[in-house]
Write a protein that binds this DNA or RNA. Structure first.
Lengths: 193, 193
DNA sequence: GTTAAATTTGAGCGATCGTTCAAATCATAT
DNA sequence: ATATGATTTGAACGATCGCTCAAATTTAAC
């Protein structure tokens, strides 16, 4: 029972990531998961319940990726790789570039209360992970000690969002790689190229 | 006939901005515009047609704001003001912070082809306006001549998107003002504060 | 004041939405 | 083999979706 559930969540993730929360219909999910409505509802309760599990899984994966940066040596180098990595996917996975949280947040006014809360929590969790990156970079001497960590973490999260959003509409990977590098430069504080 | 049409577009803008393209129903628009369906359809053809006029109007206003920065003296100072300005609206207008184009783009996979094209065009137009700001700043000596203008314009558009997106979920205006200032600092190249 | 054209009205169309639930099927234990 | 519980099925519900169009109303011209 455990494994098929994980698989269902991943299939549902594909759909929500492609179509958004409002744009995804239960029938889309039924097709992607190859399950009938009663089955989905007994397992997840509602469209909202299914989305919440999808969001949790998505956030966990992203959180781990960022914490891997924070736990590495050469933090800034790993951060640069992290920022660059999603910009090279093939066209068929183009919808996976945009941050799922930001994408869902666009439907804010129409979302169930539970989804709104989960989005806020997810954003805060990821901001904490970015903060861990900052602090680690400070501890290894790659960043100055006297930074306002909270604000820099928010700024870094904003840069991540900007990169992922631009990547959905800007066709040139070289420009995005350039921007990823500039972000790291702006983090350290000198304008390099 | 001309003026009421303008008024209708503004009322429709409110709804689309609050609820997004998919989240907005014709009945929401009928209520906001105080018109019955046949009237709206004879004037705008379809929900898509109405949205396209809304998007055009929104883009025009934003384009003018950015060009006002480009046409001012003290370009970077005006840019800072422009980046700061939307972060101080009251809560009832909170939905007007997020960029309408980015918000609509989140529903990408489910949008009519005409809306997709219009979004791409709008983003490109605004990027041109940001580029005009860069070039003006160069011409008055506030930025170095040898910048890659296209990429910096894309970067600046990304910063704008990041600020507006963060502002919808971060409660502290001071942090966002700090970030707006950092954006201008990163544009000139030195890490101030 | 009458007429013709332009505009608005609002009931209602077919399609799709999220969801339910009785019945069928599958799994497990004895 | 058979009984029992867990799971899945799929038809169908009420609500809402974008949209249509004949009828009513408003506007403009003479």
């Amino acid at each position: 029972m455990g494994y098929p559930r994980e698989q269902s969540i991943q299939q549902a993730t594909e759909v929500f990531w492609l179509k958004g929360y409002l744009g995804t219909g239960m029938r889309d999910l039924q097709t992607a998961m190859d399950k009938r409505p009663g089955s989905i509802y007994s397992a997840f309760g509602s469209k909202e319940g299914l989305y919440l599990e999808v969001l949790n899984h998505y956030t966990d994966v992203l959180h781990e990726q960022i914490m891997a940066v924070a736990n590495s040596d050469n933090t800034l180098q790993q951060l640069r790789e992290f920022l660059r990595s999603p910009l090279t996917v093939d066209d068929s996975a183009a919808h996976k570039i945009q941050c799922l949280i930001v994408k869902t947040q666009a439907d804010w006014a129409e979302l169930p209360e539970g989804v709104k809360n989960a989005l806020q929590t997810a954003l805060a969790n990821l901001r904490e992970a970015f903060k861990a990156v900052i602090i680690k970079a400070q501890s290894v001497g790659e960043l100055p000690r006297e930074l306002p960590e909270e604000r820099v973490a928010m700024w870094l999260q904003g840069q991540f969002i900007a990169l992922r959003t631009l990547a959905t509409s800007v066709a040139l990977p070289a420009s995005l790689t350039w921007m990823a590098d500039k972000i790291v430069s702006d983090l350290t504080g000198d304008w390099a190229q």
